[in-house]
Structure formats: structure tokens, C-alpha cells
Design a protein around this nucleic acid. Sequence first.
DNA 1: ACGACTTTGTGCGCACGTTCACAAGCGCCT
DNA 2: AGGCGCTTGTGAACGTGCGCACAAAGTCGT
Lengths: 231, 231
Amino acid sequence: MTHDPVTPRGIPDATVARLPVYLRALSALADRGIASVSSEELATAAGVNSAKLRKDLSHLGSYGVRGVGYDVEFLVHQIGRELGLTQDWPVAIVGIGNLGHALAGYAGFASKGFRVVALFDVDSTVVGDVVAGLRVRPLADLAALAGTEQIAIGVVATPAANAQDVCDRLVAAGVRSVLNFAPCVLSVPDGVDVRKVDLSTELQILAFHEQRKAVRDLVGPLDELGARVAR
Amino acid sequence: MTHDPVTPRGIPDATVARLPVYLRALSALADRGIASVSSEELATAAGVNSAKLRKDLSHLGSYGVRGVGYDVEFLVHQIGRELGLTQDWPVAIVGIGNLGHALAGYAGFASKGFRVVALFDVDSTVVGDVVAGLRVRPLADLAALAGTEQIAIGVVATPAANAQDVCDRLVAAGVRSVLNFAPCVLSVPDGVDVRKVDLSTELQILAFHEQRKAVRDLVGPLDELGARVAR
DNA sequence: ACGACTTTGTGCGCACGTTCACAAGCGCCT
DNA sequence: AGGCGCTTGTGAACGTGCGCACAAAGTCGT
Ligand SMILES: NC(=O)c1ccc[n+]([C@@H]2O[C@H](COP(=O)([O-])OP(=O)(O)OC[C@H]3O[C@@H](n4cnc5c(N)ncnc54)[C@H](O)[C@@H]3O)[C@@H](O)[C@H]2O)c1
Ligand SMILES: NC(=O)c1ccc[n+]([C@@H]2O[C@H](COP(=O)([O-])OP(=O)(O)OC[C@H]3O[C@@H](n4cnc5c(N)ncnc54)[C@H](O)[C@@H]3O)[C@@H](O)[C@H]2O)c1
């Protein structure tokens, strides 16, 4: 199923999800010429508790120096290696509509070793266009391309109605990691990971808490129940 | 404080995060004319365990009928009410670049009561343009608009370098829910919720697992004794 | 009317994640 | 060299979430 039961020996999922945040904070520090950082400082920059940060980093190894902190550049390298950023990851985007255009042109991809190698669509008015320096290909070419160049990550940016079909084709082409922007559940065979980015869900979660806050404002200081902040 | 078996109105965060998924699955069922659904069917459609689904729904109340299942339309209404979708949520988008354009034109907003009421940017080549039927305003107008029409949710789609400043202005304008697309940590005062959508993080998490899978494929079949490779 | 069948709602044990608090370790200063 | 101050790494307590398994509660057929 979509669930990933085993994180082999090692790093908890919750930690893995935070490593990119640490990496970004560390990169920012490195850019500012800062060579060393304490867990307290880095935790603040990453928006987490310092104990959690230390425990997270301890899963990678004992890379800190007691009494001093962590070497920024070294830690950048270690986290990058753990996340697999030392190698290039070829990415294909399927569905070059509003969102697909934005994604194809997104510089944030390349900065971490993600290289957009192919764009696909079915709409004949889009196919053949050059977007962000790449020609949009017909979806039918996906199978052929898979033989030439292995695609590591497939991005689904089509309407929800077509997402499962697109996903199936990606999987058939050997893709084992899918990032899904369509608002639907994708089912994939074992061994394939799907992560979804769901704008609508995020907004609804915000709305829930917003409504909660409105109610709390009415009841106000009379209510002794603790305020909860979304995470 | 004693641990009461029945907490009045507290819905776990994990449940809140799944309600939009259930809602979407239910809406799809309703569109297909299906009036009633079992927890097993709905759970499959939503990609979760059926026991988890039932427990989630039980937090809203006892809306199911034993031996039968849940009334689809009724449940849509209840979940929508709980999430606050019965009311309109005015949304403002700041940063009308690649991503901001896509967001402004996204139909998925309106379908759940999220109404984009204002677009902001600082770039004079963008300000004044009409995007998705709305004129892009200078960011300076934000404070003025806040007096006229309350903005419930602010969407940050500017580069990371400007995100904190934009966020501060949104908060100053009375916004208490922020959806952040910029790859950075936003700090906000108590009472303000921030959720972030981070494409780069998602890709890095996928890369981590992809790398893990690659290693497992190499070692996998031989690994019976849990060989731990020293680094 | 009643029993067989279906499905909900939930108690319970377990695993995971978070936070506190502190000993162990390191550099620096005298 | 040795003490001092600082920071890491982690044991332990705590909280949250997950899923099994089952009794309770309803429907349906006869
Ligand atoms: N635009 C946004 O801001 C936004 C935000 C969040 C989620 N989404 C979701 O992302 C997806 C794309 O959104 P969009 O606004 O870009 O829509 P869009 O309609 O602008 O683009 C969809 C593109 O997918 C192509 N397509 C359709 N079927 C296809 C198929 N079978 N194979 C390949 N390509 C196919 C279409 O030709 C079109 O170019 C949708 O599921 C949408 O719900 C969009
Ligand atoms: N394009 C994508 O697919 C994508 C995906 C994920 C995340 N992001 C992130 O979303 C953000 C926007 O991405 P983009 O591709 O649209 O960038 P972009 O450069 O195309 O657009 C940014 C827009 O923000 C405006 N802006 C800059 N400073 C501002 C300020 N202080 N106030 C108001 N507006 C301001 C700019 O004028 C520009 O129009 C970035 O942080 C990016 O990292 C983008």
C-alpha cells in the first residue's frame, strides 16, 4: 500500500521529514559565513525544540563537539549524503498546465540535485511547446523515454480524474517515487512511494483552526481549556 | 488534572488532517449517486485503515448506523461543518509570480468556500495586471484593505527572502492563518497558525527513500542476518 | 418475533514521537 | 594540570496515534 511500514535500521520517519529543514537552515548559515552552530541556535532557525534537533542529528552519528556545537559545512555534507543529495535525481513532470508550468520553471528543484529531464502532457495545444527550456512531449513517449533515461521521481500535476492513470504509467515506466499534486488518493504497488501535496487540505485545516479560534474568542477568557496551536 | 474519558470537543490533530480526505472521497461518492457507505469502503477510498476512519468519525459524533454504514450526504455536511466550510473564507495571495499565478487561477479554492479576494505583489511590472479576474495590488494596499474586508487566510508565494516581512504585514493586517509556500520558517505570534507547503522537502524525503531502496536492492536478497555496514 | 448477519464504536496494548533533565565530554583559562 | 563553563548525547517519562479485536446495536429475512 501507500504506507511505508519499515524504515530499515535507522532513521525515524519524523526525523527524515525534518532533515531538509535543518539542511536549509544550515545552508543559510553557511551562506552567511558562519562556521559553527549550537543545537540551540540551529533549532531556533529550524523552528524546533533543541532536544529534538540533537536527537535527530544523533541518528546520523556523533557529529557534534561538546561545549562547542556543530561544524556547519560538515553537517551540511552529512545530511545531504543521508538524504541522497550527492547524486542527481532525474525528475519528470506530467501535466503541464498552470501548476506544471510553475513547477517546470522552479529554480528550487535544481539547487538540491533534482533535475527536470522531461515534461509530458496529452493536450495537443501544449505538446511541442518549450517550457523552461524543455519541449513538452506527448505522454505516450513516457514508456520510450524510460528505456533511455531512468526517471527517479515522477511529478503528477494533472487533474485528479487522470492522476491514477498517469501514476500507473509512471510506475510502468519504472518510477518508484511519485509526488502527487492532484487532490486524490493514488494506489501504487509495494515498493513505490507516493507523497502528496494538497493545497486544499491545508486550507481546510487552517479553516478548522480559524473557526476554533473564532469560537474561543466568543467564549473568551471564561474558558479554561488550553489553547491549541496547529502544527 | 484527571484524564477524563470524554474530552468535550477536542479533535486530535491527526484526525483533523484526515477529515478533508474523507470529505473528498465522500463528495466523489455523492457525485456517483451513492447514498450510503460502510467504513470499510470509505476507508479504502480514502487510503486509510477502517478502524482509524471509524475512530476519526466518532470524534464528530455517532453519525453511523450499525449494520448499515454512513449516510454520505449527511456525513459530507457534518464534516464540512466541523471544518468550517459552511462559511466563506476570504483568501489573499501575496507574490504573484509563477506559483502565485497558478494559485490565483486554481479552481480548487472556490469549491470548498475559499474565495480569493485579493492579490498582492511589489513588482511594478506585475502590479495592475489582471490575474484570474482580479487586479494585482501593491503590497502597501494590504493594510488599507484589511480595514475594509477581513482576510482570513494569507497565502505567501514570494521568494523566501521576503516571506517573513510579508508574513509580518499579513499578521499586522489581522490575518491569523498563513499558508506558506516559501522555503523558510516563518515566526508568528501566538494565536497565528502557519502551515507550510514545501516542495523541496517532499522531494528530499522521496530521495531519501529512493536511495534506501537502491541500497536494499543491492544488499537485499543477501541480507538474512541483518548485516550492518559500518561507515 | 426472533435469530442470523452486518457494521459501528471503542477498550486496550503497543509503537512512535516529544520533551525534560542531566551526566559525560570538550575547550579554555588560569 | 586542574577546575570551570558550555554543549552534546541520551535515558526516562510522558503524550499521541494506530490498529486489533470484540461487544453493542442495528437491519433483514423468514
Ligand atoms: N493550480 C494550482 O494552483 C493547483 C494547486 C494545487 C493543486 N492543483 C492540482 O494540480 C493539478 C493540476 O492543476 P492545474 O491548475 O495545473 O490544472 P490545468 O488544467 O491547468 O493543467 C492540467 C494539465 O494536465 C494535462 N493533462 C490532463 N490529462 C492528462 C493526462 N492523462 N496525461 C498528461 N497530462 C494530462 C492537461 O492537458 C493540462 O495541461 C490538478 O489536479 C489540481 O487540482 C493545482
Ligand atoms: N514555482 C514553483 O513551482 C514553486 C514551488 C514550490 C515553492 N515555490 C516557492 O514559492 C515562492 C514563489 O515562487 P515563484 O516561482 O512564484 O517565484 P517568482 O519569482 O516567480 O515570484 C515571486 C513573486 O513575488 C513577488 N515579490 C517579491 N517580494 C515581494 C514582497 N516583499 N511582497 C510581495 N510580493 C513580492 C515578486 O515580485 C514575484 O512576482 C518561492 O519562495 C519559491 O521558492 C515555488
